[in-house]
Amino acid sequence: MTLPPAGARFEYQIGGADAPAADTQVVIRDSTAAPTGRYDICYVNGFQTQPGETARLLRESPELVLHRNGKPVQDAGWPDEVLYDITTPALRTRVAERIGAVIASCAAAGFDAVEIDNLDSYTRSGGLITPEHTLAYTGLLVDRAHSLGLAFAQKNTAELVREVRALGADLVVAEECQEWKECHVYTRVYPVVLDIEYQRAAFDAACAVQRSTARDPRLSVILRDYGVSPRGARGAVHGTC
């Protein structure tokens, strides 16, 4: 298991794969895409369903989906995604087996690490999922990734940074840590932090610091559009400092 270089140039391509820039060292792509041969991180939605699998899961294994008053708990921001139920050891094991199969496919494809998204789903569960449930489940995924030789990237959720790091997580993929004034929370704990900003002002502010004597060598910063679109797509934004 290896980590990407601290401060490396990276690209966030989960909205569609395209050829990385020549000086890009790290690429993050969806688990359905092929790795690039650089340092490749595999995006996995670990705490919620992918839109295309929601209906099938509800039909075939509804017990793996969190329910409130008989209805699946949805992510309000992504209503075609529902939350996995990780509230008991038995359920955590079953969901981890499901997500573990995706992690295994990342390893088989040749990725170097996994980024497990929606660690903060417990904040959208109406109190049904606790931080303790979340950490117990995360530990299963960290162990699975490591058993396959993959590094494990924490995704966002600065409020649990020390706890997730203690489980063995290796690096961070953070969205808008400059915007939310959280970058230092991650860099105090992790050796590599890959930050994606979506607001130009926050990106410019982060880059100004990274070009100064106050630069944090553990931090890499890029600017993307909210759709994380491939180059050439309408509205695509790809900025690096």
Rank of each mutant, 00 (worst) to 15 (best):
V209H: 06
A206I: 03
G149L: 05
L140N: 07
G46D: 09
Q13N: 13
R231M: 03
G139I: 09
V95Q: 12
P217Y: 01
G139Q: 02
V44N: 08
L3P: 13
V228T: 13
H238T: 00
T157K: 02
D117I: 09
A55F: 09
S229C: 05
F47V: 00
G100V: 00
G239W: 08
K181W: 02
T130D: 08
A96E: 06
L83E: 01
A8P: 09
G77D: 15
L83V: 02
T123Y: 03
L83Y: 11
A202W: 00
R38V: 03
K155N: 10
R144S: 06
R165Q: 15
L171P: 06
P62K: 09
F152K: 07
A101C: 01
C241F: 02
T130F: 15
S212W: 15
L119H: 07
V114F: 09
Y186E: 05
R68W: 06
R224E: 14
H146N: 00
A76I: 05
V192L: 11
A169P: 04
Q48I: 03
V82L: 04
H238K: 13
G127S: 15
R165I: 00
G16L: 12
I196D: 07
A109Y: 11
Y39T: 11
P131V: 01
E132F: 11
I196C: 12
Q13I: 04
G139M: 04
D195C: 04
P72H: 02
A201K: 10
D85T: 02
D143I: 01
A205E: 13
T157Q: 09
K71R: 14
G16F: 03
V189A: 01
A208P: 01
H67D: 02
E176R: 14
R56Q: 15
R98A: 10
A166T: 05
V189T: 15
D112W: 15
S229F: 08
V185A: 12
A233K: 05
E182G: 02
R38E: 09
W78G: 12
P217F: 08
A205P: 01
G100F: 05
P62I: 12
Y198M: 03
G100Q: 08
D117Y: 03
L64A: 04
C241H: 09
V189F: 08
G239R: 14
G7P: 02
I103M: 11
R234Q: 10
A151V: 05
N45K: 11
P4E: 00
L58N: 04
I28K: 10
S105A: 13
V221F: 03
P62G: 01
H238W: 14
T2A: 14
A151E: 06
L150C: 06
V73L: 05
L167H: 13
E11I: 13
G46P: 05
P79M: 14
A208H: 06
Q13R: 15
T213E: 14
P20N: 10
A107G: 05
R29T: 01
G126I: 07
P51E: 13
R144M: 07
A136R: 12
T187S: 12
T130Q: 05
L160K: 03
T87I: 06
E11T: 05
D40Y: 12
A113F: 07
R29H: 01
Y190F: 13
R188Q: 11
Q178S: 10
A34R: 07
C42R: 02
Q178K: 03
A22P: 04
D170V: 02
R234A: 15
E115I: 04
T88C: 14
S220Y: 01
H184F: 07
Q178R: 04
